[in-house]
């Protein structure tokens, strides 16, 4: 926890030296990490597979945009976006009270398309296909509407959410999430109110998603339907799986990976020219990596890192581990 805060502070301190592109990279990864954290809470900890995360981010962006354009402070707009998205998320989660696993995943797929459709339909709120322009807004009265400001805001919010979620997981509610993920039937039998617990998961995850979506909206200055399509949902699921299902650092690592990888391929491709080829190659690398991960390390980069670290340390530990093992066997 302390390390986390130190890293965050250090990043914010270094920000001015990073330049605009550097700052952009920082907030792109950070915002994605907030979104991934929200999704990991839902999928990785509560076991509810969702393929409508992209659309929910969109709800957050539109909500924050509308509040911001109405003259609200950015902080208020983000909170409002969180609340609105939490409500929509609970609505999306309602089928989860009756459906499980695969069936629910398909229901969220439907939610994704229905929300996309609503983005185009509800023109007074969303400006339809053209998209909603979002004016910069002050944050707590300060003018932070530049790349570095956004980066700083996102980092602070990410740290707060990480701390919040890790605390949440140590409450009775958090433990019930995990129990439901492991076995809904067992949880129900133990007397856990499964329906209510799930709705809490959707609400909390939705709140964070809304904030991430709001940040996306403010930083890109526009919320348009094509930015929140199913592909974005897939990206986010990829993030948490690549990073590690049900691990908090995993969400961060996955976000970094999925955001930076296309960026890197893009840079590489630009030196070659030809935009179509570049985006094709980017997609192909992304697809291949997903598959490779799914086959060889379905528990994600975080687990892979842990294993590597153990292997590196193993020669020093082996003697100790052996005696430990002997002791524990003796007890049993």
């Amino acid at each position: 926890m302390l390390i986390l805060i130190c890293v965050a502070v250090a990043t914010i301190v270094v920000l001015p030296a990073l330049g605009r592109y550097g700052a952009y990279i920082v907030y792109a990864v950070t915002i994605a990490a907030i979104g991934a954290l929200a999704l990991n809470l839902l999928i990785g900890y509560c076991g509810q597979i969702s393929f409508c995360h992209g659309a929910l981010l969109g709800v957050g962006a539109y909500a924050a945009g509308n509040f911001g354009n109405a003259g609200q402070d950015m902080s208020i707009s983000l909170l409002a976006a969180g609340v609105v998205t939490a409500l929509v998320s609970v609505l999306v989660g309602l089928p989860a009270l009756r459906l499980r696993g695969l069936y629910f995943a398909i229901a969220t797929l439907a939610a994704q398309f229905i929300l996309e459709f609503l983005f185009r339909l509800l023109e007074p709120l969303t400006h339809g296909v053209a998209g909603l322009m979002i004016k910069p807004a002050p944050f707590l009265g300060m003018d932070l509407s530049n790349d570095r400001g956004y980066a700083a805001i996102s980092i602070v919010i990410l740290v707060a959410s990480l701390i919040g979620v890790s605390r949440l997981l140590r409450t009775d509610l958090g433990r019930r999430f995990i129990l439901i993920r492991d076995s809904e039937m067992v949880a129900r039998g133990m007397g856990v109110n499964v329906a209510l617990t799930k709705l809490w998961a959707f609400a909390i995850s939705g709140f964070l998603t809304g904030i991430a979506g709001g940040l996306l909206g403010f930083t890109t200055r526009i919320a348009a339907p094509e930015a929140f399509e199913i592909a974005l949902s897939v990206d986010y699921v990829a993030m948490i799986i690549v990073g590690g299902l049900g691990s908090l650092p995993g969400a961060l690592i996955g976000a970094g990976f999925v955001v930076l990888l296309p960026e890197a391929v893009q840079r590489f491709g630009e030196s070659l020219g030809a935009a179509t080829q570049t985006s094709a190659i980017r997609e192909m690398v992304f697809g291949l990596l997903i598959i490779v991960f799914m086959i060889y390390e379905p528990r994600g980069l975080y687990a892979l890192g842990g294993r590597l670290a153990r292997r590196l340390r193993a020669p020093f530990r082996r003697a100790g581990a052996a005696s430990q093992l002997a002791k524990s066997e003796g007890v049993n």
């Binding site: 140590r170 409450t171 433990r175 995990i178 129990l179 492991d182 133990m190 007397g191």
Partner: peptide
Amino acid sequence: ASLSDLTVLDIVKVGRSVRGAGGGLRDLF
């Protein structure tokens, strides 16, 4: 259940929490 990676104490706490009507957030702070 054998699949959970919750600890023994975690499971006991879940058991404790079902009797009360609280929202389950008492350990947040």
